[in-house]
Design a protein around this nucleic acid. Structure first.
Length: 216
DNA sequence: CAATAGATCATCT
DNA sequence: GATGATCTATTGC
């Protein structure tokens, strides 16, 4: 499986990442993330826009943690959260300007047995990498990779020569407390590997008084 | 099903 | 000292 992926794809160049974060985010869908023997297709992402995005880590300026975000594009930004999980981002925008793409879910393609060993409690193939903390665990991605190159390094992103067509849905981002309405989350429509958290119910109620239905 | 609690620590105030 | 780009198990209806 992995051999076929490598043979029928190419590594994305740094120029791919040196664009507006929102463009990079959208274009990351359908690409292949490879780490060691494990690989998955990116099916859900979020854009974080930099200093003008209060929900982004970069909004607080350059700190020891966020300096990677202000560096050259095409690097991994991996941070530790909730005392338990690591989250993977791709650094976007030209050097000097912050912006990144949070990878939220993968469709497992290769190294499924290894992913299962790392996440023995996951339900089905769907549960292996659907969620930002889950996919880093499944692929063995840790803070060691923070700042590493996605072009040269151990973690790489590839583009299949022939890509399956798909439709994209746009929603607000998940798990944040600021800018909760900004439509910066992108996912493949009707994809079973997308993390289940979807459109939050609106603060308003429908006319019959019932809550708006959340997506399945 | 939905809602809640607990885990657990790096980061910034 | 509080918060957080989360996940899982448990409780409740």
């Amino acid at each position: 499986m992995m051999n076929e992926i490598l043979a029928l794809s190419e590594v994305l160049p740094e120029a791919f990442y040196s664009r507006a974060a929102i463009e990079v985010a959208r274009d990351c869908l359908g690409k292949i993330l490879v780490h060691g023997e494990t690989a998955g297709r990116i099916v859900e992402v979020e854009a974080y826009l930099g200093v003008d995005d209060p929900a982004a880590h970069a909004a607080r300026g350059i700190t020891p943690r966020t300096k990677v975000l202000f560096g050259p594009p095409g690097r991994a930004y991996v941070y530790f959260i909730y005392g338990m999980h690591e989250c993977l981002n791709f650094v976007a925008e030209p050097e000097g300007k912050a912006g990144c793409v949070l990878i939220r879910a993968l469709e497992p393609l290769s190294g499924l047995a290894t992913m299962r060993e790392r996440r023995p409690k996951a339900k089905g193939v769907e549960g292996l990498a659907a969620g930002p903390g889950r996919l880093t665990s499944a692929l063995g991605i840790t803070r060691d990779l923070n700042g590493s190159s996605l072009v040269d390094g151990p973690l790489r992103v590839r583009r299949m020569q022939v890509e399956e067509p798909f439709e994209v849905v746009v929603t607000p981002r998940v798990g944040i407390s600021k800018c909760v309405d900004w439509p910066l989350r992108f996912a493949l429509a009707d994809n079973r590997f997308v993390s289940r958290v979807v459109v939050p119910s609106r603060p308003c109620k429908s006319t019959n008084g019932t809550k708006l239905k959340k997506n399945s």
